[in-house]
C-alpha cells in the first residue's frame, strides 16, 4: 500500500479537509444562494399575481366605462328622438295652420270674385238695358210706353242671359 502512496494520516487529513470545506459552504454559501433564488421566485410570482389582478381590474373598469357610455349614448338617442318627434308635431301644426289660412284666403278670393262678377254683371245689365232703350227709342221714336219698354227689355235680356 505504501508504494501506492497510501498513508492513513494523509487520508484522514484529506477527509477532514473536505468535510470542513463542505461545512463552510453549507453554513455560509448555499443557504444564501438558495434563499436568494427562493426570494426571487416568490417575488416574481407575487409580481405576476399583482399584474394579473391589475389587468383584471382594468378590464372591469373598462367594462364599467363601456356600459356607462352605452347608457349615455342611448339616453342621447332618446332625447334626439323626442326632439325630432316634437319638431315633427310642430311642423305638422304649422303646415296645417298654413293650409287653413291658404284655404280661407282662397275662399275669400272666390267670394270676392263672385261678388265682383255679380256686380259687374248687374252693371252690364243696366248699361245694356239703357243702351237697348236708347237704341229702341231711336228706332221706335218716343212713342213707346215706359212699361212696355221695360217689358221688352226684360224679355230680351232674359233671352240674352239664356243664350
Amino acid at each position: 500500500m505504501a508504494a501506492l502512496g497510501l498513508n492513513l494520516n494523509y487520508l484522514i487529513s484529506y477527509i477532514v479537509n473536505f468535510f470542513l470545506l463542505y461545512l463552510l459552504l453549507k453554513k455560509f454559501v448555499f443557504p444564501a444562494i438558495s434563499q436568494m433564488l427562493e426570494d426571487r421566485k416568490k417575488r416574481i410570482a407575487e409580481g405576476l399575481t399583482a399584474a394579473d389582478a391589475a389587468r383584471r381590474e382594468a378590464e372591469e373598469e373598462r367594462k364599467r366605462l363601456m356600459a356607462q357610455l352605452e347608457a349615455e349614448r342611448a339616453e342621447a338617442q332618446q332625447r334626439v328622438a323626442a326632439a325630432s318627434a316634437h319638431a315633427e308635431k310642430v311642423k305638422e301644426e304649422i303646415l296645417a295652420e298654413a293650409r287653413r289660412e291658404a284655404e280661407q284666403i282662397r275662399t275669400n278670393a272666390v267670394l270676392e270674385a263672385e261678388a265682383e262678377k255679380q256686380r259687374i254683371l248687374a252693371e252690364a245689365h243696366k248699361q245694356i238695358a239703357e243702351l237697348a232703350m236708347l237704341a229702341a227709342e231711336r228706332v221706335v221714336g218716343e212713342g213707346l210706353d215706359e212699361q212696355i219698354q221695360h217689358k221688352i227689355i226684360e224679355d230680351f235680356l232674359s233671352q240674352v242671359s239664356l243664350n
Binding site: 501506492l4 502512496g5 497510501l6 498513508n7 494523509y10 487520508l11 484529506y14 477527509i15 473536505f18
Partner: peptide, 12 residues
Amino acid sequence: TDLNLTIGLALL
C-alpha cells in the same frame, strides 16, 4: 493525482 485524496473522498 494523490490516491489518498480520492480514496478518502470515496470512503467518506
